[in-house]
């Protein structure tokens, strides 16, 4: 599956899509990027008069690139029909080192820890354009290609 096709399967859209593109993907990991436009709505309230990207949004960006894009690729490699793809984040543990301000571009890279019994666990890192480590941690999610009742 190529990088364009992975993006086409992402179950998000604006204003909650936090992936602009992928640089690399293989069975072991993925690397992608996103630019936090200053127009994003949450900057109006986080923080008052000092727009800063919320940590939960950084986690979401890490998850969309590091977990979901990789998950779609891995499911595609297993010849699953991706049309009814579903994902739920099951856990995340992150530490944050430097803030991300409006209009900053970040690069997320993730390495697979394991993908078994529908669960994908990844180690993720986010760097800013200066190459500084923004945040790092582990994120897990359950991936399904059919609906469970």
């Amino acid at each position: 599956m190529d990088q364009k096709e992975i993006l086409s399967h992402l179950p998000y859209t604006k204003p909650f899509l936090f992936v602009d593109g992928l640089r690399h993907v293989d069975d072991e990991g993925v690397k992608g990027h996103f630019t936090f436009s200053k127009e994003l709505d949450f900057y109006k309230g986080h923080f008052k008069g000092k727009p800063t990207t919320p940590g939960v949004i950084l986690i979401e960006c890490c998850a969309q690139i590091g977990l979901v894009c990789l998950g779609i690729y891995l499911l595609g490699s297993e010849n699953h029909a991706i049309s009814d793809f579903q994902i739920g984040m099951s856990s995340s543990e992150m530490e944050f080192l430097v803030p991300v301000y409006p209009n900053e571009k970040v690069v997320v890279s993730s390495r697979k820890v394991y993908f078994r019994f529908h669960k994908l666990k990844c180690r993720v890192q986010m760097h800013n354009s200066k190459g500084e480590l923004v945040c790092r941690g582990t994120i897990s999610g359950m991936l399904n290609t059919k609906i469970h009742g």
Binding site: S90, S91, Y114, R116, F117, H118, K119, S140, G141, M142
Partner: peptide, 26 residues
């Protein structure tokens, strides 16, 4: 125990007993 943690239990069981489980076992 949620289904995501159940996967971790299975992986720990595999290590502890030196066995390998399949999807059907899960």
């Amino acid at each position: 125990i949620n289904s995501a943690n159940l996967v971790d239990i299975v992986l720990d069981v595999e290590d502890a007993f030196d066995i390998m489980l399949e999807n059907e076992d899960m």
